[in-house]
C-alpha cells in the first residue's frame, strides 16, 4: 500500500489519562508525500494520537518514529522538521499576519520565504491585519502557513475545518490539495467524512481509542456490500407489490408519495423498466451508493 519510504511509524501506542484509556494499541505507518487521515468521532483518541506522534505528549507504551526520530527524546531535532497546527490554539489578538509569519520563520534554521507564502496563500490583502480581526477561515489559513513556514517534511493538521462555514471549509480543502503538490507529508485529523474522502490518500478510522480500519477511502467503501438505494416520488396511487417481486429488489419503503427501493445488481434498470411498463412517472429519481459515511457506520456502529 505504501508508495514510498514511511516517514511515520507508530506501533502499539498506548496512552491513558488517570483511569481513562485514551488510546489502546494503535499502529499505523505513513508514507512520504501522503495525506494520511485520522478519522473518528469526537473523543475517539484522534487528538491524543497525533499529539503523541508530534511529541506533545509522552505515550505510556509503544514506539513512535517520525523521520526516524523519537518525538520525545529527539524533540529538538524533530521540531525543525515538522509543522503543527493544533486544535484550539490562538495567537495574540494584536499580532499582525506578517508579524506572525516573520516571528515563526525566525524560529527555524532554514525557513520558507514568508513574504512569498503570504502571496501564494492569497493573504496579501490581510498582510497587516491583526489576528483578532481575521475571519475563521483566514485564521486557519494563517495557521496552515505557520505550520509550513519552517519548510517541514511532515505537517500535522488537527481539526482544521471545525467551526468554519461551508464556504471557508471548501476553500481550506483547496489549500490542502495544493499542499499535496509540494510533496510534504500531511497527517490530517478530522471528524468530517467528506473532508477525509476528498483529501486523504489513506485513512485510519479510530473508534474508542483503537484503530478499526486502515485503507484508502475507496477501499473502505468497497468493503461495504454493493447495496444501492433508489429514491423517487410518484403522483397518484402506487402499489409496492409491483416492485417487490423483482429479483434485484430487497426492500421497498413507501412514505406518502416518497418511495425508497433498496437492492443490488442492476437495480436501477430493473426498477425503471417495471415503472415504465406500468406507465408510472418517477419524479426526482436519485440513486445513492454506499458512501464513506455508510462504511464508517458499518465499522464503528455509530453515526455522528
Amino acid at each position: 500500500m505504501l508508495r514510498g519510504m514511511s516517514v511515520i511509524e507508530v506501533s502499539n501506542l498506548h496512552k491513558r489519562y488517570r483511569d481513562k484509556i485514551a488510546v489502546r494499541d494503535v499502529s499505523f505507518a505513513v508514507a512520504e508525500g501522503e495525506i494520511f487521515g485520522i478519522l473518528g468521532p469526537n473523543g475517539a483518541g484522534k487528538t491524543t494520537t497525533v499529539e503523541c506522534v508530534a511529541g506533545l505528549r509522552a505515550p505510556d507504551g509503544g514506539t513512535i518514529r517520525v523521520l526516524g526520530l523519537d518525538p520525545r527524546r529527539d524533540k529538538d531535532e524533530l521540531n525543525s522538521q515538522v509543522g503543527v497546527q493544533l486544535q484550539e490554539s490562538q495567537l495574540p489578538e494584536r499580532l499582525k499576519v506578517w508579524e506572525a509569519l516573520h516571528l515563526y520563520a525566525s524560529f527555524y534554521p532554514d525557513p520558507a520565504d514568508w513574504e512569498r507564502l503570504i502571496d501564494e496563500w492569497g493573504m496579501s490583502e490581510k498582510r497587516a491585519t491583526p489576528y483578532g480581526k481575521l475571519s475563521g477561515g483566514q485564521k486557519q489559513r494563517l495557521f496552515i502557513m505557520l505550520a509550513l513556514v519552517g519548510r517541514p517534511r511532515v505537517v500535522f493538521l488537527d481539526e482544521l475545518t471545525t467551526g468554519l462555514d461551508p464556504q471557508a471549509r471548501r476553500e481550506t480543502w483547496q489549500l490542502i490539495e495544493r499542499l499535496r503538490q509540494t510533496g510534504v507529508t500531511v497527517v490530517l485529523v478530522t471528524h468530517f467524512m467528506e473532508e477525509a474522502e476528498r483529501l486523504c490518500d489513506r485513512l485510519a478510522v479510530i473508534d474508542d481509542g483503537a484503530v478499526v480500519a486502515i485503507d484508502t477511502p475507496g477501499g473502505l467503501v468497497s468493503q461495504m456490500d454493493s447495496r444501492q438505494r433508489i429514491r423517487f416520488r410518484v403522483t397518484g396511487p402506487f402499489d409496492k407489490g409491483l416492485l417487490t417481486p423483482i429479483p434485484e429488489v430487497s426492500e421497498v419503503a413507501q412514505n406518502g408519495d416518497h418511495i425508497e427501493v433498496t437492492g443490488t445488481g442492476d437495480l436501477l434498470y430493473a426498477v425503471t423498466a417495471v415503472l415504465a411498463r406500468h406507465q408510472i412517472v418517477a419524479a426526482g429519481l436519485r440513486v445513492d451508493q454506499a458512501s464513506l459515511d455508510d462504511a464508517f457506520v458499518a465499522l464503528t456502529g455509530k453515526r455522528f
Partner: peptide
C-alpha cells in the same frame, strides 16, 4: 499565552 495555547504551539517549534 498559556490559555490560548501560544506556549504549547511554540513548544512544537525549535524555539
Amino acid at each position: 499565552y498559556r490559555e490560548k495555547g501560544i506556549l504549547r504551539r511554540m513548544s512544537t517549534t525549535p524555539m
